[in-house]
Simulated scan of single mutants.
Amino acid sequence: MRILLTGGSGMVGRNLLDHASAREYEILAPRSRELNLLDREAVAEYLRENKPDLLIHAAGRVGGIQANMADPVGFLVENTQMGVHVINEAYRAGISHCINLSSSCVYPRNAPNPLSEDQILTGELEPTNEGYALAKITAMRLCQYISQISGSAHYTTLIPCNLYGRHDKFDPANSHMIPAVIRKIHEARQSNASSVEIWGDGEAQREFMYVEDLADCVFSVAEKMRIGDEVPDVMNVGIGRDYSVNEYYQAVASVIGFEGEFVHNLSKPVGMRQKLIDSTKINQLGWMPSTELSVGIEKTYRFFLEEVTNG
């Protein structure tokens, strides 16, 4: 099976390429200089020339609350264009299978937890990342429409919870919570700081999964598609439980060895109060995550020390 992987240089893409199952496929992972996903004609030409059997769409412009609030236009426009160009042109080129990677930000901000797939588009989105969420919803709906009108195409969307791990971004300007916390607490320990600031009261609940587990899930779904098994058109992928922001800070501090105190800045935005997804569908297909939080943080911190601080 020949796979076209978009976003091969991103965190998810690089973990997919590093996964043991990647050796079982021929994977095309063009960099942005080889294939500009914002150029529809370039995407169409690449698909016609290379004729992949499966598209894994993992590309996207990503970032945390600060980045999304600073440039909502860019997050909406660029992610929408990438999703529409890649998915629609794959359909037009006759590619029968697609795994589209989405985000749990597609869920309404006030939806009851755990979040199930049928709650999408039932309420107002979280304003701090609304543009990104709208782009991801568009790509998801496009996949559903293609599967509905085609007799042979099967395009499915996986909605992972928040991710962290190897090849993550650790720059506070565009990183998600766990890598940002790792860098913040590492620097506090290095400078012998007595305290670390937490945005808000730290009681917001978040579900984070080690990114290698998502890679494992993607290849599990790809194999089911290859052998012709039925796969739902939208599935959550998570660990089945969440932790408070305070608990994540404490877990990172334990790994790094920071013994100072935490100070809460109640003037800062915190996003949704809880975001726990229901992963029943993917679990029923036989997939379960395997990485404990402490193990994932240890591996991520080791990567930070080896690749970021020494790079």
Rank of each mutant, 00 (worst) to 15 (best):
D233T: 14
F303K: 00
T157E: 09
V234W: 08
N68D: 01
L293T: 10
L17N: 05
Q144W: 03
G202N: 09
I95H: 09
M177R: 02
I282M: 09
I137F: 04
V263P: 01
L47P: 06
E126G: 03
E45C: 06
Y132G: 03
S195E: 15
I227C: 10
A90T: 13
R40Y: 00
S267K: 13
L276G: 07
Q66C: 02
Q81I: 15
R40C: 09
L101R: 02
C143I: 03
N236F: 12
S102F: 11
A58Y: 11
Q274R: 15
L101H: 07
S279G: 11
I178T: 02
C143D: 01
Q144D: 11
I185K: 07
Q274Y: 03
Y91C: 01
G131A: 10
V73F: 14
N310M: 08
Q66G: 04
H186D: 15
V211D: 11
S294C: 03
I27K: 11
D229R: 14
I182W: 14
L305E: 13
H97D: 02
M288H: 14
L101G: 06
R61A: 02
E89H: 05
E89F: 00
G94E: 06
D233F: 08
Y132V: 02
G240D: 09
M1T: 07
V77E: 14
L276C: 07
H154P: 07
C105M: 11
I27P: 04
D71A: 12
V73H: 12
S32C: 04
F258D: 05
L17F: 09
N246W: 13
L38D: 02
D233R: 15
G257M: 08
F262H: 05
Q250I: 02
E187R: 09
I137G: 04
E203Y: 04
